[in-house]
Design a protein around this nucleic acid. Structure first.
Lengths: 389, 389
DNA sequence: CGATTTATCTTCGATCTCGAAGGAAGTTGC
DNA sequence: GCAACTTCCTTCGAGATCGAAGATAAATCG
C-alpha cells in the first residue's frame, strides 16, 4: 500500500499548485496573472514547490512575442487520488494524478443494495488493488493523497452522510465519509453523483461560470455550477426529477405525487414503457443502441422524454440564466434526446436567456463524475486550512 | 453640492470598513475573527481608519465575559450614498449613510415612459435637492460617495445598460450608468429592481446564504442570492414571469406565448381581472386594501395568484434548494397571497428541500431595493480595485 | 475582597508580499 | 544583422501581515 502523507503545502503554495494542477497555468507568469500575487512572490513559492518535489520544470512553452516561459508541471510522483462513481448497478473506479487526469479507470458491476459497509469495503479493496498495480509499493510508491466517491442520492454537505436516498436502501443516514476516513487517514470526499458530474464538466467549459449539467440515465439528476463553484443549497439542490409535467397519461411516482418528470422521462421509465410494448432492455445504454439502430418506438420515446425534460428546463433556464446546459449521463448519447431538449428550450425561453445559451452533450463523457471528484478533492488536499470542499 | 472625493481606502482597510458598515463587526476583535486577519494587523488598520476620519470609537460594547470591546462605528461625516428605485409609475429616492442605513427616503410620482434622459436628469435633480438639505453644503458638507438606481427591467451587468425592457419604452440599450457617471464622477450602480431587492433583503437574513426573493407588485420578478452574493447569470437571471402555468382559461402574454404566470398572477393582471368585474383600481396597493377589507372577489383572486406563483416556485425550490423564500413587493402585504404560496410549496416540494425552508414576507419592507443598492454600492466604493459590483 | 478566568487590545521581531528595476531570451521590423 | 520591443523571470529594499507574548479590563467565584 502506498504512503498516506498529507501534502506539505503552506500558505500561497496551495493556490499556485491548484492553478497548475487544474491546467489553468503553465508558467510563473501565468501563475502571477491568475493568482493575483506579485511575480516575485510567485517565483519564490514555485522555487519552494520545486525543492519539495511537487512541481517540476519541464522544457519551455510557446513564445507569445517575448522570452519563452519555462513550463511547469506537477511531478508525477507527487501523488494520486482514488475516486469512484457509484451507480445503481455499476461502479466506475479509478486513480487520478494530481492534475486530475485519469491514470486508470475501471468499471465493475456493483449492487448498491448490498448496503453501505459491504459496498464501501469492496470499493476500498478495489482501490488498494489499483494502487498496488499503478502507484507501486514500498517507500518509492507514489503516495495516495485523497479518496472520493459519488453516490446516487442526496448527501449532507458537512457530514458526508447520505440522506433519504430513494435508490439506495439501507444507506439512509449512513456516514459514508467517516467510514472511509477510518480506512484512509486522508481527505475524504462524498458527494452526489450529479454534482460531481457538474464539477467535472465545468473544467471542460472554461469561461462558462454558470452551468446546468443534466444527468440523464436510469434516473434524472442535475448539478449546478454557480460562479465557477458547485451549488449545493442545503444539500438537495439540483433535483428536477419530481417536477410535475403536463401529459395525457397519468402515472404515480415513487415520491407519492403524480406526473413527476422522472415517471416519464427517466431511463427506468423509458425501459419500463418499452417492456410494455414487448421490448425487454436492461440498461439505458441498450436503449441508446436501439435509437441508433433507428427503432421507431425507441426513438419516439426518447424524443418525447427530451421534450418533457426541455419543458422543465425552460423554467430553470429563465430563472437561472446559465451560460450553458450540458447533457450527460448514458442517455446523452441519444442525439434525438438532445435535439428535443434544445427545441423545447429555444422555443419557450426568453430571447434574453437563450441569446448566448449553449445546449450540448457532455464534453467529458463517462468519466465526468470521476474528474469532478478529483477536482473537489484537489481543493481539499491543496488547502487543508480552508473550509471543506 | 457636496464634495465628490473617492474614499481614501487602501488594501485591507476596505474589507474592514465593509464589515463595520455592514453591521457585521463592532470591535477590533470581531473584525479579526471575521476578516481572518491577525488581531495585530486589524489594530494597525483601524488606527489608520480612525486617523483618516472614516471610523470613530464610540463607547464600549457589552462584555462577553472579559474586557469590554471598544465599539467602532462609521463616522457620520464619512459620506453618503444617493440611491433610487425606479418603478413604472413611482420612484423612491433616498440618501444612505455609509452603513447603508437610510437618512431620508422620499417617494415621487415618476412616469418612466418619458424616456431615459428626462427621467435620469430629474432623478439627479432630486438627489441634489436631498443632498443640499441633508448633507449640507460647502467644504464642511458630508461628501457624496456613490450613486445607484434600480430599474424595472433587465440590466447588462458589465455596461450598466438596460436591455429589452418590456415596461420601459425608449430605454432599450440606453447606457444608464454612463449617463449618470457623466453627472457624478463617482462609482455608479445600475441594477434590476428585483435584484436590488434581493440584496437588500439578504442583509436582514443573516445565516441564510441562499435566498429567493420574489417581487410581487405590478409585475412579477425574482432576485437570487447564492452563497451570499447576487446571482445575475448573464444579466437576465431571476425571470419567472413567463413560465407557463396550468389554468382553465387561456390568456396571451405580452411576450407572445400563452398562459404566462405574469398574465394571471401579476398585480397588473389582477387589477385587470377586477376591472372586468366592475371594480376599478389603480395600484396593487389598492388591491391589498380590498383584501384587508375582506372583499371576496379580491381575496379569491389574490389567493389564486399565490397558488400559481407557489406552483412555479416548487420547481425552483427543488432545483435551487434555498434557505428561505422571501416575498416582497406591494402585494406581499396581502396575507392570503403568502399563505397560498406557502401551501403550494409545502405540498408539492420534496421533504428534503422544505425541511428547513422558510417562506416569509419581507423583513425589510418597501426600502429593500434602496438598501440593496446601498450594499452593492458600498462594495464598489470600498474596493475600488476589485471587479465591478 | 482578591485570585482566577475570559476577552480585548498592543508591542515587537520574524516572515511574507509587493513593486520597481534590471537581466535573460525571445520576436518583429527595417 | 541590428535596434526596438515584448515577454519571462529574478533581485532587492520597503512595507504589510503574522503570531507570540504581554498589558489592560472586566466577569466570576470562593
Amino acid at each position: 500500500m502506498s504512503g498516506k502523507d498529507r501534502l506539505p503545502v503552506r500558505g500561497a503554495q496551495g493556490e499556485l499548485l491548484r492553478l497548475v494542477a487544474g491546467g489553468r497555468a503553465e508558467s510563473r507568469a501565468e501563475l502571477a496573472r491568475l493568482s493575483g500575487l506579485a511575480a516575485s512572490s510567485v517565483s519564490l513559492r514555485v522555487e519552494e514547490l520545486i525543492d519539495s518535489g511537487l512541481l517540476v520544470e519541464e522544457g519551455s512553452g510557446g513564445s507569445r512575442g517575448g522570452r519563452r516561459p519555462r513550463r511547469l508541471r506537477l511531478s508525477p510522483t507527487a501523488g494520486v487520488l482514488a475516486v469512484a462513481d457509484l451507480g445503481a448497478h455499476h461502479a466506475r473506479l479509478g486513480l487520478l494524478d494530481l492534475s486530475g487526469d485519469p491514470i486508470v479507470v475501471e468499471e465493475h458491476p456493483c449492487d448498491i443494495t448490498r448496503g453501505p459497509e459491504a459496498v464501501l469495503d469492496w470499493l476500498a479493496d478495489v482501490f488498494d488493488g489499483l494502487l498496488e498495480r499503478h502507484a507501486g509499493t514500498g517507500p518509492s510508491a507514489t503516495p495516495l493523497r485523497g479518496v472520493g466517491t459519488g453516490v446516487p442520492g442526496p448527501v449532507e454537505p458537512s457530514a458526508g452522510r447520505v440522506v433519504s436516498p430513494s435508490r439506495m436502501p439501507g444507506w439512509n443516514s449512513f456516514p459514508v465519509a467517516e467510514h472511509l476516513r477510518r480506512r484512509y487517514d486522508l481527505p475524504v470526499l462524498v458527494e452526489n453523483d450529479a454534482n460531481l458530474m457538474a464539477v467535472g464538466e465545468a473544467r471542460a467549459w472554461p469561461g462558462h461560470d454558470n452551468l446546468m449539467v443534466l444527468k440523464a440515465g436510469t434516473g434524472i439528476g442535475c448539478g449546478l455550477v454557480v460562479g465557477g463553484r458547485l451549488h449545493r443549497g442545503r444539500g438537495a439542490a439540483g433535483d428536477i426529477s419530481h417536477v410535475r409535467v403536463r401529459t395525457d397519461a397519468s402515472a404515480t411516482c415513487s415520491c407519492g405525487h403524480s406526473d413527476c418528470l422522472e415517471a416519464y422521462a427517466s431511463g427506468a421509465a423509458l425501459i419500463a414503457a418499452l417492456a410494455g410494448q414487448g421490448m425487454a432492455l436492461e440498461r439505458p445504454a441498450d436503449l441508446v443502441a436501439r435509437v441508433d439502430d433507428g427503432v421507431p418506438e425507441a426513438t419516439a420515446l426518447v424524443r418525447n422524454a427530451g421534450r418533457l425534460i426541455g419543458e422543465v428546463l425552460t423554467v430553470l433556464v429563465n430563472f437561472f440564466n446559465p451560460d450553458a446546459v450540458v447533457v450527460g449521463g448514458s442517455l446523452s448519447a441519444a442525439e434525438p434526446l438532445i435535439s428535443a431538449v434544445r427545441a423545447a428550450v429555444y422555443e419557450r425561453c426568453l430571447p434574453l436567456a437563450t441569446r448566448d445559451l449553449e445546449i450540448a452533450a457532455t464534453r467529458v463523457g463517462r468519466d465526468a463524475a470521476l474528474l469532478g471528484a478529483g477536482a473537489l478533492l484537489l481543493d481539499a488536499v491543496l488547502s487543508p486550512d480552508q473550509a471543506r470542499v
